[in-house]
Computed example of a mutant assay.
Amino acid sequence: MENIEVLNAILRDGTTQSEAFSLFDKLDIVEPEEMLGMWKGEEIATGHPLEGLLTASGWYGKEFIDAEHVHPLIFKKSDGVLYTISPSFLPINLLLQSLQNIPKKILSPSMTILRPILHTSKSAARLRKVNYRGKVTSAMIYDNKGIIDVFRKVDANTLLGIMDIKDQSSDKTFFFILRKA
């Protein structure tokens, strides 16, 4: 089965952390220049505590302007308009600890209420190459968070990403995909 077919099956059915890493490890590296532009994101179900949070809150994806300017969190309003938020205001570790107790149905209305506080036009990450699991590939490094998103190429328009969170309370990795918008 080709990588894109495996990915589509994983997106449809979910998978284990081990199987997701198996696919990730088989994929080719991606160069920073290949990542420029707008990308639409989708979470992969592998059992990570953050699963469903981004989708429920209206996450659209990421925008890579150049190596020094990246918008890691782009959201979509109900009218279809995209906007960027600052990850600096998001308490990732608190969310990891309490997400099971937060009803996902309140996340989208909460984002609407918090949009004026969270909205930013400034970039909040940079694009660099890192060595991760034996391959040097592109990674998005958050400016003010202990988070690195590492990417591998499924095909020219699809990336598989992992979120490497420093000091997270979970032993699991958050997996997602990006498709060229």
Rank of each mutant, 00 (worst) to 15 (best):
L36F: 15
F89E: 10
E34K: 03
K40W: 00
Y83P: 02
S110K: 03
P32W: 04
L36S: 09
P32I: 02
G47C: 02
F75A: 09
K62D: 03
L95T: 01
L50Y: 02
Y60E: 03
Q100C: 12
Q100T: 13
S110P: 03
T46M: 00
G41P: 02
I44E: 00
E34H: 04
S86H: 06
M38T: 13
E68P: 01
A67F: 04
H71W: 10
S88Y: 10
M111V: 06
P116Y: 03
S57I: 07
T84L: 10
F75T: 06
S78L: 09
Q97Y: 08
A45W: 09
L53N: 05
M38E: 15
S108F: 13
F64Q: 04
S78H: 10
V81S: 14
H71E: 09
E42R: 09
I113M: 15
Y60T: 05
L114M: 14
G80F: 00
E31G: 08
Y60S: 05
L54I: 09
L73W: 12
W39G: 01
E31F: 11
E42L: 06
L54G: 15
G37D: 08
Q100V: 13
K62M: 13
K76L: 07
I65Y: 04
S86D: 11
K40R: 08
P91R: 07
K62N: 08
I74A: 06
T46L: 07
E63C: 13
